[in-house]
């Protein structure tokens, strides 16, 4: 955004409010809803794990190590994408 443009009202906003700030607020709120979405799942998981600890222990030894590692890498690096989305202008 150029210097001259900065103080002109945009079609949606007003002086001083940039799309960038708005995008960041929106993305954080969205991430917040995602946490809550999966939070429900984690709540169930912890309730059942608390109820049946032996079964969970046994089941975890049946997991495929390679697939599990791959899955973890994908899930943990996924947060880069919203970050890049916010950074993109």
């Amino acid at each position: 955004m150029s210097e001259a443009n900065e103080h002109a009202p945009g079609p949606h906003g007003h002086p001083g409010t940039h799309d960038e700030t708005r995008g960041r607020v929106g993305m954080w709120l969205f991430i917040c809803t995602e946490i809550l979405l999966f939070g429900g799942l984690f709540l169930l998981y912890s309730a059942y794990r608390f109820k049946h600890p032996a079964d969970f222990h046994q089941a975890s030894s049946d997991l495929n190590r390679f697939d599990g590692t791959l899955n973890t890498i994908v899930l943990t690096t996924r947060k880069v994408r919203p970050k890049r989305m916010v950074a993109a202008r």
Partner: peptide
């Protein structure tokens, strides 16, 4: 509904008139 909510919260925070 979630996306509408995000839109409304952001609008109220960012776009109030001077």
């Amino acid at each position: 509904s979630i996306l509408t909510g995000i839109n409304i919260v952001t609008t109220v925070h960012q776009l109030r008139a001077p």
